[in-house]
Design a protein around this nucleic acid. Structure first.
Length: 427
RNA sequence: GGAGAGAUGGCCGAGCUGGUCGAAGGCGCUCCCCUGCUAAGGGAGUAUGGGGCUAAUCACUCCAUCGAGGGUUCGAAUCCCUCUCUCUCCGCCA
């Protein structure tokens, strides 16, 4: 959510900024709602004030044993008018909240302008794109060759966009997860957390998935109102919800491994083959809660932490700064990490690192006590994948494949695989 | 699943025979005083969100908030209803 003062103070400037990311702010509607809100709020509060004065006078009169009948007569009808005003005000406030919850974050000034991903800016590349003197297989074939990747079974069990991993590939999948967690907790200073995979609507509203993107989520039946998490970002960032953090505990840095569940509504026909786009995938997520003045430095370091995983795994990648039009709803600035996929001959997103500034914090009421002012102020929140495990597995199988169908294991992973240096097809 | 107890400010904890209660007291924190170090002591202050006014995130003023939502009442932290969560006992269970 944007700062309401900012929105009220200069809606046209906000609209101009939002236009760069392709969002049309209905300034006129906002003005109308604001005007009505103001008038109704003043009226309501006046009536409340009158009621309070009256009630107090009656209390005093009664204590002194005076006759309260005239005072009661005076208060006649006030309740009804107040109730009506309150109801009206509440209705407008609800509309105003709906309006504001649907407004995306303002892009940071350093974000390149552009309407879609073509305007994204490549910042750097790392690693040599591998050359193969044999026909490159994609991860589906490499995985199948290792007798470890089975989409047919998954389709029978659940449907499209699921996978069953077996044997050494399943183990590699687990090894990747373990390695990432160890790296972030061991050398990057993150605290590992284990969190619920089912969350309530309030949590999703806090991080920005609701109310606008409900169709991307899997909701549970029944009246519990729970959803499967689309990313660990939701439960982990919500650790800061409704809290006032002491300055000393900042920055909070959490690393968290969870499955992620996404309906992938609207992506029909996209990435239908392989593990690139699944309804269920594993991810190690990094989440930071920081002082506002530190958030952009934190974005750089967090991105570096995600890059460190790719480097350790020796996977070629590039870093892209998303343009205004490609930015996620809640993000002020985002770096995407894209890994090289030989079979596709292109870089594909494997991590997304974002600074949300106070956009999520405002929805979450996530604050810290600023020693300079002594007052609770909004924190800044960030997160980034470190990394998406399924895509990392796919990238590894493709980049490290050998002519005989084996897969070379990057050194950092070997301790997690009992020292195995190569994954080899059975038989 | 059954029975019971509870949810109050940064924390602990009174109030719950409805009225000067935004809320005693304590802890913590801030400032001041005293004390030739340390410790102790004395005094003052210390919730959050929002509105109006304003150049102002100053001041002033108003409103809301005692788990959440509704109700009764001139008036609700206090009474009633619903929900959520926590704790205890029983049952069940990985």
């Amino acid at each position: 959510m944007l700062d309401p003062r900012l929105l009220r103070g200069d809606p046209d400037a906000c609209a101009a900024r939002l236009a760069t990311r392709g969002f049309r702010l209905d300034v006129e509607r906002f003005r109308v709602l604001e005007e009505r809100r103001k008038a109704l709020q003043v009226r309501t509060q006046d009536l409340q004030s009158a009621r309070n004065r009256g009630a107090k006078a009656i209390g005093q009169a009664k204590a002194q044993g005076r006759d309260i009948a005239p005072l009661l007569a005076e208060a006649e009808g006030l309740g009804g008018r107040l109730k009506a005003a309150e109801a009206e005000l509440q209705a407008v406030l609800a509309q105003l909240e709906d309006f504001q919850l649907a407004v995306p974050n303002l892009p940071h000034e350093s974000v390149p302008e552009g309407s879609d991903e073509r305007a994204n800016r490549e910042l750097r590349r790392w690693g040599d794109v591998p050359r193969f003197d044999f026909a490159v297989r994609d991860h589906v074939d490499v995985g199948a060759g290792l007798a470890g990747m089975d989409f047919e079974s998954a389709a029978r069990i659940s449907g499209a966009r699921f996978v069953v991993l077996r044997g050494v590939v399943a183990r590699l999948h687990r090894a990747l997860t373990q390695f990432m967690l160890d790296l972030h907790t061991g050398t990057h200073g993150y605290t590992e957390v284990y969190v619920p995979y089912l969350v309530n609507a309030e949590s999703l509203r806090g991080t920005g998935q609701l109310p606008k993107f409900e169709e991307d989520l899997f909701a549970l039946r029944g009246d519990a109102g729970l959803y499967l998490i689309p990313t660990a970002e939701v439960p982990v960032t919500n650790l800061a919800r409704d809290r006032i953090l002491e300055a000393e505990v900042l920055p909070l840095r959490f690393a968290c491994h969870t499955p992620c569940f996404r309906s992938e509504a609207g992506s029909y026909g996209k990435d239908t083959r392989g593990m690139i786009r699944q309804h269920q995938f594993e991810k190690v997520e990094m989440v930071q809660v920081v002082r506002p003045e530190e958030s952009y430095a934190a974005l750089e370091s967090l991105t570096g932490h995600a890059e460190a995983v790719l480097r350790a795994l020796e996977l070629p990648y590039r870093v892209v700064a998303l343009c205004t039009g490609d930015l996620g709803f809640a993000a002020a600035k985002t770096y995407d990490l894209e890994v090289w996929l030989p079979a596709q001959g292109t870089y594909r997103e494997i991590s997304s690192c974002s600074n949300f500034e106070d956009f999520q914090a405002r929805r979450l009421r996530a604050r810290w006590r600023n020693p300079a002012t002594g007052k609770p102020e909004l924190v800044h929140t960030l997160n980034g994948s470190g990394l998406a495990v399924g895509r990392t597995l796919a990238a590894l199988l493709e980049n490290c494949q050998e002519p005989d169908g084996a897969v070379r294991v990057p050194e950092v992973l070997r301790p997690y695989l009992g020292g195995l240096e190569r994954l080899t097809p059975p038989g």
